[in-house]
């Protein structure tokens, strides 16, 4: 168990560092980094604090404590993927509205007489 927890803590640390590095380079927006950082610190805490993990596995009814850790990880992933779907949907809607607007503006620009066109 301790070896698994060691790897989990190592993984969480890498995740946290990765997110911080992406933030520094502006590869991820702050609003989307917060959930990843929270997930990283949550997993790190659970893998270092063994009595807490044992308590959690009892609450969840899992006999093997590291399985509780994996369960929490899967839960976090599902939530974050769902959030990504929501963001994608919003982007798609905005993108459609934008494409329609561009097409309409282009059409109206073409129907202007040449001397009113700019550029």
């Amino acid at each position: 168990m301790s070896r698994l927890l060691l790897f989990t803590s190592l993984g969480s640390c890498i995740l946290i560092l990765m997110v911080l590095q992406s933030l520094r380079r502006a590869h991820i927006r702050v609003e989307y980094s917060i959930s990843w950082l929270a997930a990283g610190f949550g997993l790190l805490m659970l893998s270092r604090w063994e009595s807490g993990l044992v308590w959690l596995s009892k609450v969840l009814g899992v006999t093997y404590p590291p399985a509780a850790l994996l369960g929490v990880g899967v839960g976090i992933l599902m939530l974050m993927l769902y959030r990504v779907s929501m963001v994608v949907s919003e982007l798609k809607d905005n993108n459609i509205a934008l494409a329609q607007k561009v097409a309409i503006l282009e059409y109206r620009l073409q129907s202007l007489p040449d001397n009113e066109k700019v550029g």
Binding site: A99, Q100, A103, Y107
Partner: peptide, 17 residues
């Protein structure tokens, strides 16, 4: 007269434009 969409939107998005 032609209204040209910049990328493929599917029938609904096309009609709405």
């Amino acid at each position: 007269r032609v209204l040209s969409l910049p990328h493929h939107l599917g029938l609904g998005g096309c009609l709405q434009a």
